[in-house]
């Protein structure tokens, strides 16, 4: 139990630092912004109680906000996939009887993980980008931004499963 805690604390720090020191500096024409930190919410154990997922999403968003000078933005955005995570897992796992508690790619299989990650990243990015613009004036532009950034974040998240965070 203690080991799991330490592992997730380290993961939290690593994910936030990677986000602010590496991915925030990646700027493809101001259009594609990878928001990698959501990986932490994705990788929480399946059995984590709902309130804990929410509190951790809140802390995670706040940590990213402090570094990005966007008070509340990432906090508000990270809570939404945190809330829908349980439903998405239930929806995807309907037919599978036996499943690992750790929802990593190696444990759950490529298809399961990619659809799980894609849905939650998409929800997160849409909320994030529309909150950031906070108007539907540039509706189409923001829409495209969300889609492209989702694709990029998904790519990085899947890649991370082959490099680190394997178990």
């Amino acid at each position: 139990m203690m080991r799991v805690w330490i592992k997730y604390i380290i993961m939290f720090i690593v994910v936030v630092l990677l986000q602010v020191l590496l991915f925030n500096q990646v700027q493809f024409s101001g259009f594609v912004n990878p928001w990698f930190y959501i990986l932490f919410i994705l990788l929480l154990p399946v059995s984590t109680p709902g309130y804990a997922v929410l509190l951790l999403s809140f802390l995670l968003g706040m940590a990213v906000d402090i570094f990005s000078d966007t008070p509340g933005l990432h906090t508000a955005a990270a809570l939404v996939p945190g809330y829908f995570r349980a439903s998405v897992i239930r929806m995807l796992s309907a037919r599978e009887s036996e499943q690992s508690d750790y929802p990593g790619l190696m444990q759950t299989g490529f298809r399961w993980f990619v659809s799980y990650a894609a849905i939650l990243i998409l929800i997160h990015h849409f909320v994030l980008f529309y909150l950031e613009v906070f108007s539907f004036a540039g509706f189409f532009r923001t829409f495209i931004r969300s889609i492209f950034s989702t694709a990029f974040t998904l790519f990085v998240v899947v890649l991370s499963q082959y490099l680190v965070f394997r178990d």
């Binding site: 809140f58 968003g61 906000d65 966007t70 008070p71 509340g72 933005l73 906090t75 508000a76 939404v80």
Partner: peptide
């Protein structure tokens, strides 16, 4: 509750 708190920070 948390979402309201976050939106309060934001706005």
């Amino acid at each position: 509750l948390l979402e309201v708190a976050a939106l309060f920070f934001l706005f």
